Every structure is written in structure tokens, then in C-alpha cells.
Amino acid sequence: DPQNSSETSRLNTKHADLFPVPSTESETVQYHYGLKDLVTILFYIFITIILHAVVQEYILDKISRRLHLSKVKHSKFNESGQLVAFHLSSLVWCLYVVVTEGYLTNPRSLWENYPHVYLPFQVKFFYLCQLAYWLHALPELYFQKVRKEEIPRQLQYICLYLVHIAGAYLLNLTRLGLILLLLQYVAEFLFHMARLFYFADENNEKLFNAWAVVFVVTRLFTLTLAVLAIGFGLARMENQTFEPEKGNFNTLLFRLCVLLLVCASQAWMMWRFIHSQLRRWREYWNEQSAKKRVMVAPRLPAKLIKRESGYHENGVLKAENGMSPRTRKLKAP
């Protein structure tokens, strides 16, 4: 009956945040975000804390005992070890999602049919797990007894991840967010792997050079995709009205704010990268110049000491015939 069909469609739209909605294009069930996501995220926060403790207890602690690291290096080793495990799993998971959903083969799908209100289960589950992990990182600062000097730096990147992931999820930019997260996690995985190899052997710094190249390329790709999808793709969409009840935020102000946030975060990361690289090169050249000064410094010739005839015995000069030499008398002036 057409009347019953329209009524069912109206009810599905009204309660989309509470119940999964069957997709009209396929038989798969799709989902919408809602208040119940908060309970799900809280549940997975506890799961993430347990997994964090397992990785720390059975992997990282055993490795760090063999390396005999200092207190400062031990803290950084634990941080990088946890993030390597997280970034590797998230990288594989995110790559699987974007390939199976066809976002890589069809870049126009990043902005076509916006708003992307209904999500496949694996996309929604991925975002909820990402939010749970970065929210769990806040109490972990206390559990891991992070030094006070390190807390501001870790709070910065935790908040950046939460703002970008939650923004993409709530503003229905999940497809673009998946691609940008994939690029970000590749660079972060290489960086923390380089730190682990450095802690194992301080002469092993080749992976840092590979990370530096990937980091710069990642920033360029992130800015290019953001401008392409938001600045050009969404700007050409027909429906450009502010309708938050339908999940549509495609207005000029919205696009400018999102682009400003993405560009500001990428510029900030690039500035920190350049600053750290310049400091690293300065330290390297100072060490090289110090080594050259040590090698070039002239050696003073050894002074020749004129020994008297005879030999020494118990600190006393003996003559060759075995008798002590006579002491010379000083003439009075």
C-alpha cells in the first residue's frame, strides 16, 4: 500500500538515531548516530583499558626490561609501543573499510549524495572504537604516571584526534574522515616504529628519514583531499541549506569553518615538524664541528728531558760505578 509505505518511511526517518534502517539500495542494514552511541563508547572504553594493560604487561614490560632504559626513555618507549599497536590495527582496519566500501576506487563518493546520514555497520563501529580509544587515553595519563612535563604535549594530540574524529562523525563527513585517518595513521605508525628502533639502538635513525618524507607527503595529500572534497565537491552540490534535523550542514560558513580547521591543524603540525628537524640538524652539525675541532687541534711536542749519566735506584741517582755522584759545591757570590 503506498500510504503504509510512506508512513513507514516517515517513521524510519524520525527514529533513525534509535534503530538501524534498511538501505533502499541494498539489503544491508545501515545505521545513524544517536545518544545510545555514548553508552556504546563507554563500554568500549573499558575494553580498551583492558587491552592497553594486556599489551603493557605481556609485551612492552618484557622488552623494556631487556633494554635497560632510563626513566625518561622508558616512558617514551611505553607510549610509542602502545601507539604502534593501535596505529597498526587501525591502519589495517581502515584500509579494509575504504576498500570494501569502494571509497578509494570512486573518489567522487566522498562528497556525492551528501549528507551521508546512514552508515554501514563497519564504518559506524570503526568510528565508535576510535572515539573510545582516544577517550580512554585521558585516564591512562594518570594510570601510566606520565610526567608533568609530558602531559601538555599528549593532551594536545589527544584533543586534536577527538575533535577531528568526532567532527567527521557528527557532521556526516565519515567518508572523507576515513581517508584522512588512513593517511594520518600511516605517518604516525612509521614515526613510533622509528622511535622504538631508536630506543633499541641509538645509531639506528634511518627510519626517521623515511618517516620525514611520508609526513610531508601526508600533509600535502590531506590538504589536497580536504580542498577537493569540501571546497569543490560540496560547493557544487544542489542542496546547500542548513538542515541539522536531516544531517545537512552544507553551507558556505560550514565549509569555510571545516577547511579552516583542517588547514590550521596541518599548518601547526608542519610547523612543529620543521622546528624539530631544524633543531635535529643543528645538533648534528654541532657534533660534527666538535669532532673536527678535536681532530684538527695541534698536538704539543713532547719535551725532551736530559738525563744525567748513571741510573736511578730507589729514586736516587747512582753513578755508573755504583757510587753516588758528588754534589757540586755552590760558589759564594
Rank of each mutant, 00 (worst) to 15 (best):
L141R: 02
L260K: 00
A200D: 01
Q154W: 11
Y185F: 13
S289F: 11
M237F: 01
N203E: 11
S276M: 14
I274Q: 09
V98Y: 04
E205G: 06
L260I: 09
A168S: 15
L252Y: 04
A53K: 12
L141M: 13
E79A: 13
N4E: 15
C257N: 08
L38N: 04
P120T: 15
L11R: 10
I179M: 12
L253D: 08
S109T: 08
E79V: 07
L88Y: 05
Y157S: 07
T24V: 10
V146G: 04
S289R: 12
L69V: 03
F242K: 02
L256P: 00
Y133C: 01
H164N: 11
Q184S: 07
F254K: 01
P152G: 06
L182D: 01
L35D: 02
T241V: 06
K124F: 09
I151H: 04
L60E: 01
C257F: 08
S70D: 12
Y96A: 03
A212H: 03
A302K: 13
K145Y: 07
L119D: 14
F19V: 15
N248P: 06
L170A: 08
Q277I: 02
V39T: 05
P244Y: 10
K331M: 04
T48I: 09
R279L: 13
I63K: 00
K62Q: 06
P139K: 03
T174S: 15
P244R: 03
E283A: 12
L60M: 07
F221N: 06
K303R: 12
W271H: 10
G177C: 05
L207D: 02
I49K: 12
S5V: 05
E27T: 10
R326A: 14
Q156M: 14
L138P: 08
L18P: 00
Y133D: 00
G34V: 05
P20L: 07
Q3W: 14
L196M: 14
M193A: 14
F249I: 02
K329E: 11
G322C: 03
S109R: 13
Q122M: 10
N203W: 05
V262G: 00
I49R: 11
R282P: 01
S289P: 01
L11W: 08
F189P: 01
N248V: 12
H275S: 12
P20Q: 05
L128K: 10
W93T: 11
G310D: 07
V29C: 10
L256T: 05
K292S: 14
E320L: 12
V213M: 06
Y127F: 14
G247M: 11
K303Y: 09
M270K: 02
E205K: 15
Q240T: 11
R255C: 00
L317A: 05
P120L: 05
F189E: 06
L228S: 06
F249N: 00
L69G: 02
P139C: 08
A166F: 15
V216N: 00
T327Q: 13
I63V: 15
L181A: 04
L51K: 00
P107D: 11
L141K: 02
Y114T: 11
P115W: 14
C94L: 13
Y157A: 06
L104K: 07
V84M: 08
G177K: 04
N12Y: 09
E238F: 01
L176T: 09
L304N: 09
Q3K: 12
K331T: 09
L300I: 05
M193G: 12
D201I: 06
F125S: 08
I63Q: 00
S80T: 03
E245D: 08
K329Q: 11
